[in-house]
């Protein structure tokens, strides 16, 4: 099972397509960001992340 990152929202998933945006996910990603509480997090606000979960920092 390889981890993939959504090319639009950068969310990390094991599926071929992002479960949130339904766009193809890429295996070429780097950096990891875990958002636990998007409402309280400044980082989530800066990157406009609304859902908790794991995100990549860079996706190609």
């Amino acid at each position: 099972m390889t981890e993939k990152a959504c090319t639009r929202c950068k969310r990390i998933t094991s599926d071929e397509r992002c479960p949130v945006c339904n766009v193809p996910a890429s295996t070429n990603w780097s950096g990891l960001l875990i958002i636990i509480d998007p409402e309280k997090s400044d980082i989530a606000r800066e990157l406009d992340i609304k859902l908790p979960g794991e995100y990549a920092l860079r996706v190609r």
Binding site: L32, I34, I36, K40, S41, A44, L57
Partner: peptide, 27 residues
Amino acid sequence: QEKNVARMLARKVRDSGIEINAILVPE
């Protein structure tokens, strides 16, 4: 072990309610 630590820490945060809002692992 940066990513593993981040994931284990995230799980601990969810279970125990420590006040951590985000974990960042820059490459």
